[in-house]
């Protein structure tokens, strides 16, 4: 897998979709390719996040541990999944544990590097802002929708 392929993969991630290919190439070149064996974890719930991972190949489970210690697999991810990105945007602990369920090939984008590039190229920051705003908008819509349904249920119940 060469740089160019990694760039294509990165472009398919909405967060990076509108960023110039040459910047994505720099991001890819300076990022580390990291392979995990089946059963190895990318990160654990509660850790401070230092990197996001783009899944290049393989599958993994997203597991959330409840306050009672019960483990719940909430999702399975595969090629093209982009996980842990919240951690490189703001300082929050990991909200889930991700464990490889096959040989897993990833591109590790460290928070440090990501911020250095965003600092250097304001256009990149603007694109990311747009993407985040879009997500916010989407979340708002979902919230409104959820509220509406909740009210419906409440009225139906009453």
């Amino acid at each position: 897998m060469s740089l160019n392929e990694e760039v294509e993969l990165l472009r398919s991630i909405p967060l990076f979709a509108n960023i110039e290919p040459s910047k994505l190439k720099l991001l890819a070149f300076t990022s580390e390719r990291l392979a995990f064996q089946e059963g190895q974890s990318l990160f654990h719930q509660g850790d401070m996040g230092d990197a996001a991972y783009l899944v290049v190949d393989g599958t993994a489970d997203v597991v959330i541990e409840g306050p009672d210690g019960a483990k719940l697999t909430v999702a399975q991810i595969g090629r093209n999944a982009f996980v842990g990105e919240i951690a490189i945007l703001c300082d929050v602990p990991r909200t889930a544990t991700i464990t490889a369920t096959s040989k897993l090939d990833t591109l590790r984008i460290s928070k440090d590097l990501f911020f250095r590039l965003v600092n250097e190229f304001p256009t990149m920051a603007v694109e990311i802002m747009r993407e985040l705003a879009r997500r916010q908008e989407q979340s708002n819509l979902q919230l409104t929708e959820a509220n509406r349904r909740l009210r419906e249920l409440e009225t139906a119940g009453a």
Partner: peptide, 20 residues
């Protein structure tokens, strides 16, 4: 060519130069 493409836009004192 690749190096020029990747690094030409960075300021010369950027640490990415040294690292990568």
């Amino acid at each position: 060519s690749t190096m020029v493409e990747l690094f030409a836009d960075l300021p010369p004192d950027h640490e990415l130069f040294q690292q990568f």
